[in-house]
């Protein structure tokens, strides 16, 4: 005997529950990683002079935004990732399986859901996809790809 008050709705007449939305007629199934990348905002930033984090050979770019964040959260992916599947949150070495949970913890109480990715130029895009996916899952909304600005000759 559910005691739900129905909405005054002349067409549907008797129906259970208020504010019941009619069923979505079709749901398109999109692979999870695709959704994540669609929703992630990715942009490039120039590496600042003083860097937090481990040594990586940053990729080189012609143009990049200035990094203005005063307390940036870095995720570094060094070449050793290929062997040990470990990345770094700032200076802290973390196995990739725990990246999502550690990132959730790091984002707690932060207003910006923004991470700066310091990926080694040698790291392949396929490997970064896994990192992106886990960051998105943890609630990251923006990823800044940190790069070295090429000096004009």
């Amino acid at each position: 005997m559910p005691k739900v008050a129905a909405q005054a709705d002349a067409i549907t007449g008797r129906r259970r529950g208020r504010r019941v939305t009619t069923s979505l007629s079709e749901i398109n199934v999109i692979p999870l990683v695709d959704v994540m990348l669609v929703l992630l905002i990715i942009f490039m930033v120039a590496a600042p002079m003083m860097q937090k984090g481990v040594e990586v050979n940053l990729p080189v770019t012609r143009r990049a935004d200035k990094l203005t964040n005063t307390d940036p959260l870095y995720v570094s992916v060094p070449t050793s990732y290929r062997q040990d599947r470990r990345v770094f949150i700032n200076q802290d070495s973390v196995p990739i399986d725990l990246l999502g949970e550690r990132m959730r913890q790091s984002l707690q109480g932060r207003s910006d859901k923004q991470v700066f990715l310091r990926g080694d130029g040698e790291v392949q895009l396929q490997e970064l996809m896994d990192v992106f996916g886990r960051l998105k899952e943890a609630g990251v909304e923006k990823i800044g790809v940190v790069a070295q600005e090429r000096r004009n000759q």
Binding site: M1, P2, V4, A6, G13, R14, R15
Partner: peptide
């Protein structure tokens, strides 16, 4: 009270 409704529906008629 409303413990034993005669019509279990959730509309004006009930």
């Amino acid at each position: 009270g409303k413990e034993f409704p005669f019509d279990a529906g959730h509309d004006d008629a009930a």
